[in-house]
Design a protein around this nucleic acid. Structure first.
Lengths: 234, 234
DNA sequence: CACCAATCTCTTGCATGCAAGGAACGTTAG
DNA sequence: CTAACGTTCCTTGCATGCAAGAGATTGGTG
C-alpha cells in the first residue's frame, strides 16, 4: 500500500505529511505513546489541520498511530505481546518469500542478494555494524521483492512499520557474535534459494527470524517501550 | 484492524460511513471500477463531505477503493494477477492459522469448529448452499481467531475484504460436488488440529485453499471484472 | 488532610467555503 | 467527415469556523 512513496510528482501536501510522520515514528524521533497534536503539526508544516488529520487517518490504518476519539492521536506502543505477534507474522511472510523466490529460479533479485551478501561479509569483517544493519534491511527487502507478490510486499511493509524495525535491528546486532551468525544464516538461505530448495529455504529463513528475534529481545531492557509510560490508560 | 466493528456506541458518523461503504463494496452492491462521489454519498448519508472523505482515505488503505487525486475515488478492481496474489496470501495465512491452532491444543475455538462442521454437514446433506456458504465463512474465521494472533487476524481481514470474499464463495460452491469436497477437507483439517499435528494441518489447509481457488476460477467467466474497464492504467 | 465535584480549557469531529486541476464536450478548422 | 482545440463544468484538495466531548485543574467539603 501507499505506493506513492515512489516519487510521485503529485506529492499532495498530505502525502508529504504522511511520509514525514511515518519517518519520524519509524525512526524513533517521537516517543511511543507521545501525543500528536493536529494543530501543532499543522503549524509546523505550515498547513491547515485538514491534511494532518487525513494523514493521521491513514497512519492509523497502517498501525502507526492510535486515534482516540475526542481525545487525541498517539504514537502506538506495541505491547510485548504485539511484538511477539508481529515477529510471528514476520517469520511467516519472510519464510514464504524465501520459498517463493526459490521457486522462481534465477531472477535479478538473486544476483542482488548475492551482491548484498558480498558487501555484508566485508561489513561484518570490519565490524561496521551501522552499515551491516543497513544491508540486513536491504537483504530482507530484496527477499520480499523477489517473491514477486505485491500483496505480500504491502503487508510486509506495514508489518515492518509497526515494528519500527530499523530501530530494532541495531539493538539485536549489538549482541556479541550476532552479526556474524546473522550473516551466516543469510548465506545459508541464499544457497538454498539458488538450489531451488523452497522447503528448506523457508525452514531456514523462519529459523533465522526466530534467532534474530531472540537476539533482539535479549538486547531489550525489561518491558522495553511498554505501556509503563502511560499509566493513565484505562 | 478497525476494531470499531465491535459495536462501539461512539459510532462516530464516519465510522458508520466506513462500515456501510465497506459492506456495499464487499457485498458487490457497487460495481468494481465504479466512481464514488464524495458529494453524492454525503447527501445520501445526510452528512458533509468531510466524514465521507475520511472514510475513503481509510478504505483506500484497506485496499477497497482507489483515490486518484483531483479525479475521483473508485472501487478497486483486482486484476487477475492480484486475485492470484491474494489467494497466495490467503493460503499462507490460513495455513499458518491451522498450524498455530493445532499448537494451542484444546481451546474453545476447536469446539466451535466442531459445531460448525456438524451444522455444515447438515447443510450439505440438504444441499442448502446459501447456509453452507455462511458456515464456510465462519469456519475460516474461527480458524483465524483460534490462531490467537491479532496481527494475523487483522491482515487476514483486509485480505478478505479485498477479495470481496462473500461474493466469491457462492460462485465456487456452485461447482458440482464442491460443497461436499469442501466439507470433507474441513473435517480433515480439524482432525489434524485436534491431533495437534500442526505440520499436516498446515499442509492440508493450504491444499484446501488451493482447491477452493480452483473451484472459484472454474466458476468465473473469462476475465471477470478485469481491468478492461480501465485501460488507462500505466 | 483526603476526597469529591463542578468548571474550564484544550482536544478533536464535522460543516462549509474557496480555488485548482481534470475530463468531457462542443466548436471550429482542415 | 475527422481531428484538434478551447472552454466549461465537475471533481477533489485545502483552509477555516463552530460545537461537543474528554480531561485536568481548582475549589469546596467531610
Amino acid at each position: 500500500m501507499t505506493q506513492e512513496a515512489g516519487g510521485s510528482a503529485t506529492t499532495s501536501i498530505q502525502a508529504k505529511v504522511i511520509a514525514e510522520m511515518r519517518a519520524r515514528i519509524i525512526g524513533g524521533e517521537v516517543d511511543p505513546g507521545a501525543p500528536l497534536s493536529e494543530l501543532a503539526l499543522a503549524d509546523e508544516f505550515g498547513v491547515s489541520r485538514t491534511p494532518v488529520r487525513e494523514a493521521f487517518k491513514q497512519l492509523q490504518t497502517e498501525g502507526l498511530v492510535e486515534i482516540r476519539p475526542r481525545v487525541g492521536t498517539f504514537v502506538t506502543t506495541p505491547s510485548r505481546r504485539e511484538i511477539t505477534e508481529l515477529f510471528e507474522m514476520k517469520e511467516l511472510l519472510e519464510g514464504a518469500a524465501a520459498r517463493l523466490l526459490a521457486q522462481r529460479g534465477r531472477v535479478p533479485e538473486v544476483d542482488r542478494l548475492r551482491n548484498n551478501l558480498r558487501e555484508a561479509d566485508a561489513a561484518v569483517a570490519r565490524d561496521d555494524r551501522e552499515h551491516y544493519a543497513k544491508l540486513v534491511g536491504e537483504f530482507h527487502d530484496l527477499l520480499i521483492t523477489g517473491a514477486d507478490n505485491s500483496k505480500l510486499e504491502a503487508h510486509y511493509k506495514t508489518l515492518m512499520n509497526q515494528l519500527a524495525y530499523p530501530r530494532l535491528v541495531k539493538t539485536s546486532l549489538d549482541q556479541p557474535g550476532r552479526p556474524l551468525q546473522s550473516d551466516r544464516e543469510h548465506h545459508l538461505v541464499l544457497e538454498l534459494i539458488i538450489e531451488k530448495d523452497g522447503d528448506s529455504a523457508e525452514q531456514v529463513m523462519r529459523e533465522h527470524v526466530r534467532a534474530s528475534r531472540r537476539a533482539l529481545l535479549a538486547g531489550l531492557p525489561a518491558p522495553g517501550p511498554g505501556p509503563s509510560t502511560d499509566p493513565a490508560r484505562t
